[in-house]
Structure formats: C-alpha cells, structure tokens
Nucleic acid binder design. Sequence first.
DNA 1: ATCACTTAGATTTTT
DNA 2: TCTAAGTGAT
Length: 730
Amino acid sequence: MISQEEFVELIKTTLNRDIKSNYEQNEAVLAPVNEDQFIVAGPGSGKTTTLVLKILKFYFVDDINIENIMVTTFTKKAARQLKDKTIMWAKQIFKQLDKPFDKSFNNIITGTLDGIAEDYVAFDDMSVIDNFTSSALMMQTLLKDDRINDKKLKQFVKRMNENQAGVSSAQINSIILTLREAMYENMADIDELESRSERESLLYEIIHEYNHQLDEKLIVDYALLETRFYELLNENKILKLENNLRVLLVDEYQDTNFLQEQIYFKLAEYTKNNNGSITVVGDDDQSLYRFRGSNVHLFTNYEQRISKKLDIHPKIIYLHTNYRSTDTIVDFLNDYINIDPIYRQTSSLNKPDIISQSTNTNTYPVVGLFRNNIEELTYDLSNLIYELKKGEKVEFRNEYGENFKVQFDNPSIAVLLNSPKEINAYNRKRLPYFIRNTLTTRDENMVIFNPRGQNIEATDIVSLICGLILQAVDSDMKLEDSLRNIPPRTHDILDHWREFTKEYMDDEKLIVDKNNINIQEVLSEIENVCMTLIDQTAENKIYYDLITETIIQTSRAIAYDDTLTANQVFWHILIPIALGAVELDDDLFDIDLDENINIMSIHQAKGLEFDVVIVDVGSDILNNKKSSAFKRFPEKGGKTYNIEHYVQRCSDVGIINDENPTDAAFDELIRRYFVAYSRSKTLLILCGLNSMRHGYQGNFQDSIKIPNIATGWNRNKIWVWENLDNLFNI
DNA sequence: ATCACTTAGATTTTT
DNA sequence: TCTAAGTGAT
C-alpha cells in the first residue's frame, strides 16, 4: 500500500502519465473507492488510460483486491487491450517498487458482458452458439411446413424491412432473428406482444419453436445468454458477485441496451452494499449500435436513471482534452458535430467542445480527394496510399495552386467505409476491391488487411469443401433447381463451387446415403482431397478450420440424431455459407494494424487510431437516388426503427424516443461519421465521387446537389460545407 | 403535365 | 428482378 501522492509520482515517473496536468482526469483517477462516477469522454481523451489508472489506484492506494474489480467493454478486442495494458502497467509499477508482480492481476475480471455472462451461465453441456448456427437453426424452423412462403409473414417482414423489392428467404430469416433478439434486449413481454399481434401468429409460433429447440439442445444464443445472466442475478443466485464485487467499471456505456443496463444496475447494487462504486464511461457522440438494441438515451439520462433506481448519485466528469489529433482535425470535428442544429438538442448533456492537446507538431489541412468515377478515384487513392506508406515525400496541391508536403515514416493507414465488402450482393465490385487489387498488383509485399471484406465462400479452399459436399448431396441438381427467393449471387456461388471442384479433381465423387449423412465422416473423407490446398497458404488453413468447425457446430445443432438428410445439409449448411453468413474473426489472423493498410468498417475502427485516415463519403453515390438515401440523407426511420418500435410497445425501457424516426436515423449517421473522422491522428482525407462536391448535371436542370450528412449537410437540407470548400481539395 | 422508354442501384454495422 | 428518377417528345 502506498500513499496517493506516491502513486501520482509513481505513474508520472514509470508510466509517463502526468495526471496533475489534467484536472478532470485527476478527479477521475484519484476518486475514493465508494465514489460513483459518470465519465463523459470525448474521442482521444484517454478513456482507457483513465480506466486502467483507476484500477491501479484502487489496488495500490486503497488496497482493493483485484478479484473484487470487474471491468467490461463492448468488443473483445477492447477487452483484451484493456487487460494487457493493466497487466503491463502493473508490472512496471511493481518493478519500480522492487516488489514481485502480483499474479492476481492475471485473473482480473475483464471482458464483454457476454463473455462474463458466459462464465456464470454456461455449465456442463450448456454452450453458446454463434450467428451462423442460430441462423441455420432458424432456417430449419422456417422451412418446416413451407412457413417461409406464408403470405402474411412475408408481408410483415416487408413492412419491417421497408425494402423495395420482394423479400428473400435470407431476409425473412434475419428479420425474425433480429426481432427476437430485440425482444430480449428490450426485455419486452413476449406474451403480451403476441396477444397484441394476432396477424403475426405464425411469427410467434416460429419464435417459440426456435426457443424450444435451444432448450432441448442445451444451447443458448447471444440474446438468451444475457437474459439468463440477468435472471440469475435477479434471484441473487451468484453469491460470488454478491459478496465480492466492490468496483464495477463499464466502458463504452453509450452502446448499452436495456437488458444490459438492468444487469449493470443489479451489479451496482452489489458494489453499493460492499461499500464500493460503479463508474460508467462513454461518449454519446460515438454511439453506433442501435441496430443491436443499444439506446443512447440510457447514457444521456444515466444520472437520473441510476439515482431513481438505486439512489446512487454519480459525480459527472467531462474528459474533453484530445491527445490524439492535430489542431486542424479537432477544429474540423467540433465544426462537424455542430453543423446540425437539432442534433445537440437530443442530448441532455451539456458537453463542452473538444480541446486539442496533441504533441504532434505537423498540422495539415483536412484533404478532399474527389474524382469523376471509381476508376480515377481508385488510381489516385492507391498511388497516394502507396507513396505515403513507402515514406515518400508527397506533395498535395489544390485547384488554386496552393501546396504542402507530407512525409511519414511507415505510417499507420486506414480506409474507413460503411461497408468493407469487396463485392456486393449483386456482384458489383466496390471500392475496397479496387484498392486492394491495385495496391497488391503494384507491390505484392504490401499487406492489405480486410478480413471482413473477403468473401470466404468464394475462396478456393471453401469452394472445394462445399463443392464436394454439394456434389454428394445434390448430384442431380434437384435441390438447386428448387431454389426460390434467393439473391442472384448465391446461385453464382453454387455454380462456382461445382465448377471449381470439377476442374480440381476430374471424376472422383463422394457417395453418400442421402437420408443418412454423418457430416463429420464426410468432412474427414474430404480432408485428404483438400490437403494440398490447406498446406498452400496460412490463410487456407484458417479458412479450412473455420468452415469445418462451423459445419460441425451447425450440424450438431440441427440434427435430431447424429445424421442429416441431403435436404438439411443443402438448406441449413450450404445455402447459408453461399449467402455469405460465415464470419471471420479478426483474432484468427496475427495482424499488426500499424503495419498493414487497413480497410475496415467505421464500426470496426471504433476505439482505434491511425496516422492517416481515409474516409469514403460516397465512392458509389452518383446521383440523388432515393435508394441510396439511407446512407447519406435518410427519409425514414428504416428497419432499425421499425423493430425497435415494434418491441418497445411492450417494454419497460421507459424512454421511447420522443424524436421522430427520421430524426433518429439522422442522429445515427452524424455519429457514424464523427467516429470515422475522429480516428485520425495527423492526416484526414475525405474521398468520393465528384458528384459529392459539385452535384451532377441533369439535361434539363442545373447541377443537382446530393445531400449527404458526411459532406456537411444538416437535416434542414442546408449545405453548410457548400462544395466542400472547407477542405483542401486535391 | 403526361407518356413511354432508359438507366442505375439494391444496406450495413456485432456480441 | 423491381423501382423510381431521368429523358425526350408531345
């Protein structure tokens, strides 16, 4: 145990963290164990640092056991970073104090709420299934008795989805799963919902049957996992937490849903009884997960909500010093977040502007790179990325002949987009494809990292595995011919599998009994054939492991005994794979974000920072089409709102958005680009088609402007950044 | 203003 | 495949 003064001195000398210079951070870190806090932290304000320092302070100054502390974050990646940093800094302090490292730090309870819930909920045979498996299970429920072609059900899904074209089987599947998940996330009374929705009786039949299957097979999906955890807590059945939990730290609280809030409140009750505290940290401007049930109002109204429920009155602290970005970028951010006059009104928080404290001495203007078409854009963007990464001196010159030069030493670079997908559902190539293609053609040593953009289902190794299975279960193409309501790309994938396999191995065929397929046996027979490909590259091995594991887990979940029919293999395994439902976990790759060129979604980039950030604000928006409005200037609330609204009718969440649906959609877009722009440390580049700057020329009209939140329009259709003249356009 | 014909684009984010 | 904006003529 050391004194507070010693601790402050210690972290200054060993960790080079001078908290005295930042009043707010000082307040946050040096709080007593029983002080509850509500920390509103802007981008780059040292959120994680503050949390880690709080943990260390509790341990070294207040003598709190590490086992009595719980820290949660939103993603696995963030949880790992937090744990690593805590252990690393603790080690450094122990070294400085000349004491051995306390191994209890290795057992610190950190993770996502799901991860922590799993530790308490999962027992014996109970296991958690991933999205692929749950969608296969739902597909099985849907195909039974041809429910998937029910007119009322289709109509309902269409209403929820608001899509122009008809609904595909995949969409019906995904809407039902999302809706069901939303029910749990909002703790909606499902029976009451059912009694109020007579026309959707089939929907509830399907949901009940799906739940029944989970029960029977002793599995839970993500939605149920947290529900079970809450139930256990509510019955005070987790004594370990009830007796020991003293300090609860919650990161990314702005992405919390109602169910999670109730879990946290229950845990906060324990900390209160144990003379401890709860601290939540977040930023309402960075709330991105409404589609997953998160509700930013739970954050902005946190003070009122927790004081009402538990009589806890947290101290509110604003961390608004930005250590990440240059002055010009911080100015740009403050500028951006104030463009829309309605946006700020939705928050009850009185947030101060961000203040720049970057040690970075090079300040460059925010750059605009706009071209006439995707080819020109790709060409210039790829060149730019290449030269910057190679450490060349790059000259930026605008249309007025002004110029400045930029040079980096192996900078970290990220291209951020709404979707990192290289090819869309209609087989069109997107910007990520063009960038990767151009850069790898130019220099094969350049690593372009875009794990979520790849279409796993189209890789050689997966084509071979699935092609072999497909040949076996559907040699006469009877099943394939029965396909209806499937996106066009899925057909192409099936064809590709068959062709690839035919070319790869002339004539050999796998023979199976079509009513009695043991998928594990089939896979082990296939293994030999795949060996050459598996050994070829490290990626192939990863894809192979991923796909076989997925198939095995899924077949376990859908088989009544150990075997499947050809029909089941086709519809519940092959079709979902062809639809692109298999997800790749970034953790499977040994990656270094600072070394590679990263192409990622804005969501994935949350919590990260890069020297150079390139944000796609419209590489595929040519004109003012209604169909692209959702991603630039929404005209309606969309699917997220419909689902939220549907379930919240029977939920106690309390704060139903008093905003209209469209306004909520605007808020979401504003936040998304705020997150994107605030990732950059030194150089921020906006890119897109020229139509984003100058509009497009109709034959009869003058130039027609294209409203876009990312390019500085507000929802009143006023273009505050007209023609993007605030950027340095190259 | 109205009609028939041509053309571009279709959500997506995650535990 | 389906939709709505744009086009060009009346």
